[in-house]
Design a binder for these strands. Structure first.
Lengths: 291, 291
DNA sequence: GATTTTTTTCTCATATAGTGGAATTCAGTC
DNA sequence: GACTGAATTCCACTATATGAGAAAAAAATC
């Protein structure tokens, strides 16, 4: 593995700074030189100050270091989702290998959940509707119910496994997510996942029996209380679509169809063909079901 | 300033790990304890492994640490833009104090550019169309032309100062940005800024004399070659708007108006009133100019 | 191309990051 | 409230991160 110091050197040289300039006020020239040559590690406090001075974020730093653009976590979830969307069993199994390996070496439950998520995807693709070992699911429930603070990991994990859980469980957990959401004030990434979870919850509930009507309204209220940014047109349009489908289910067929068609037409007009097709497809399912 | 170790402890406890579990395979229990109590700093290599094991990104870690959601850099640019949009001179000057301070203590050009950006904003708000000290602008040009690798900082800096530069300069620099863009393969944040820069370039060129017609087509081509994601409806709609305004300028009035109106109606239908109003407003300007 | 000046590396000293194991505290059990 | 086992902290020790200044290398000046 390449040393972090070498990356710092590259950046420093690109910015045209001398060792003296960069180190001043933070640490000694001699040590910075040593670190850059890969002959020493560096303390967290010091590297923080260096990057600050270089006007570079940690995220960018790691990217420049090893070319992995997304941070480890996003990377894992994105890869998994990508493999799932592409029905790429081979890649899924590769990821599974990695996760299994991590679980074995570290022995922490976290990695077990990753494993579980991959199993879920795999079983869906394979169309053998195996509820993968039920005890794993139970572990997952236990974990999510116990978690005091829903970090980005837990949110992502839940977001990608909720489709495997029964309705009541999803409603309870989504409820918890919404309530604990407050803590992540101005961290946009968090808001995005939370919104995504609520949207998925609504979609999921649409697919279920009608008795969730009340719950549906509650979650819709939650979502609208979150004030979706003006420029997040995608979420706004998805919401329009969901609301339309809901109206259809509730009996107001014409109004619902109109709303969904409107959402589809927006996708079409902006050239997002895939999304338009998916929405169209879903509309047919809903219409077929209700007939 | 609170110590990083304390934050690690919080996270570890929330996840229900013992010192033994977390430290195993990375470092000794006793040292982890010492670090968590704030009695020692930790090396970059070790904290990286710890966070990995905790399934937490650096970004999230710093957020949990000091509650600043965005990384330092985004935070600065966001705050500045926010102050600018809100015409908040007071906040701008506070930021200016900070930037000035950083410049004085570190003496690096970087901070001078931050300062410059704030000056630009301030002068626009004040409506005294002072080109703030011309030599600063020259410094900025020199810097941007020399930069070998356009990092996130340079991209953001350029994106927020280009409106103060003459047309030819903007075209040259945007050209450079596009050409050097390749290096940031799968780093979404980068793609976003690059797209934003190209969009702003187009908008800027619209406002200029007609002789940039050829250049306009070139940049439009660039933008379309970037394959804007299907779900980035906002960019797609903005592009529709720009294209419409371009048609108007080029003489095809009806077609242009239709396109812009379409874009506006999408904003309206999705409840993005502010954006609709801005687009409407801009349309009037373009129509007024051409008459 | 010799001299001066700036920048980087090297050597060695010191502070502090990090270890192993004993001592202590903590949580549960009787 | 003593006993047991696990989790954490303390303490003596080692390894390594970091500093001061000299030496070497590179760049700039004449």
């Amino acid at each position: 593995m390449k040393k972090y110091g070498e990356t710092v050197r590259r950046i420093r040289e690109q910015k045209g700074y001398t060792l003296q300039q960069l180190s001043s006020g933070i640490l000694s020239v001699s040590f910075l030189s040593k670190f850059e040559r890969g002959e020493s590690d560096i303390s967290l406090g010091h590297i923080t100050h260096l990057l600050e001075k270089l006007s570079i974020t940690f995220e960018e730093f790691f990217y420049l270091h090893d070319g992995v653009g997304l941070e480890q976590l996003d990377y894992f979830f994105d890869k998994a989702k990508e493999a799932y969307v592409n029905r790429d069993l081979k890649q899924l199994r590769e990821l599974r290998e990695i996760a299994l390996d991590q679980w074995k070496t570290h022995g922490l439950e976290t990695f077990r959940y990753n494993l579980f998520m991959l199993d879920v995807y795999e079983s869906i693709i394979d169309d053998r509707m195996i509820q993968p070992q039920n005890d794993t699911l139970d572990f997952l429930y236990a974990y999510l119910f116990d978690v005091e603070v829903w970090g980005y990991y837990e949110l992502s994990l839940y977001n990608s496994t909720m489709y495997l859980m029964p309705h009541e469980m999803v409603m309870k957990l989504s409820q918890i997510v919404f309530e604990k959401r407050v803590r992540y004030g101005d961290f946009k990434k968090f808001d995005k996942v939370v919104i995504s979870i609520l949207m998925n919850t609504l979609t999921y509930m649409l697919a279920g029996p009608n008795l969730y009507r009340e719950q549906y309204k509650v979650f819709l209220g939650y979502l609208e209380s979150l004030r979706i940014p003006e420029d997040d047109l995608y979420t706004r349009n998805s919401l329009l679509q969901i609301k339309g489908n809901y109206e259809i289910k509730m009996g107001d067929r014409e109004k619902g169809i109109e709303m969904v068609k409107k959402a589809i037409s927006i996708y079409t007009e902006l050239g997002s063909k895939e999304l338009a097709a998916t929405a169209e497809n879903y509309l047919h399912i809903v219409l077929g079901e209700i007939k």
